Computed example of a mutant assay.
Amino acid sequence: MILALLAQDPGTPTGPEFGKASPLGLLIVLILLAGTVLLVRSMNKHLKGLPETFEPEHPEPDQKADDGTDPGAIPDVDATDPPKPAT
């Protein structure tokens, strides 16, 4: 009995409410579209205010930090020096 009920073809939906969209759906779509337009305009305005490059004009004070690790953090080892025995 249940299999016969599940196997029935529902047919094409018909009736007075079929195919009608709610005006509320159109309103929601228009609100989302307006919000997207405003967000894009705001983002473009903020991007225009950014500098062309983020490189500092006078890098001398930061040069030491940009050179890498602290001196002495990695010991200088020549390839010609034999390995030192562990004590």
Rank of each mutant, 00 (worst) to 15 (best):
T36V: 10
L30S: 13
G19L: 03
T14C: 05
A34D: 01
G15E: 04
T12M: 13
G25Q: 13
P10G: 02
G15D: 04
A34V: 03
E17Q: 10
G25E: 14
L38T: 10
P23T: 05
S22R: 09
F18P: 05
G19A: 01
I28L: 13
L32A: 15
L24Y: 00
L39T: 06
V29S: 08
L26E: 15
I31H: 06
A34M: 06
I28T: 07
A21H: 13
G15A: 00
P10T: 03
L26A: 15
I28D: 12
P16D: 12
P23E: 05
V37P: 02
L27V: 15
E17V: 08
A34L: 09
V40A: 12
L24V: 08
E17H: 08
V37I: 10
P23V: 05
L30A: 15
F18T: 15
G19M: 01
L24F: 02
L38G: 10
K20E: 01
F18L: 13
K20P: 00
L24E: 11
L33T: 14
I28V: 12
T14L: 09
L38D: 07
K20F: 01
K20A: 07
F18I: 15
G35S: 06
Q8G: 08
E17N: 11
L39I: 09
S22F: 01
T12R: 11
T36C: 11
L39S: 11
I28F: 09
P13K: 03
V40L: 10
I28K: 07
T14I: 04
L32S: 15
L32G: 15
E17C: 07
G25W: 10
T36F: 14
L26S: 13
D9I: 03
I28G: 07
P13H: 05
P13F: 06
L30W: 05
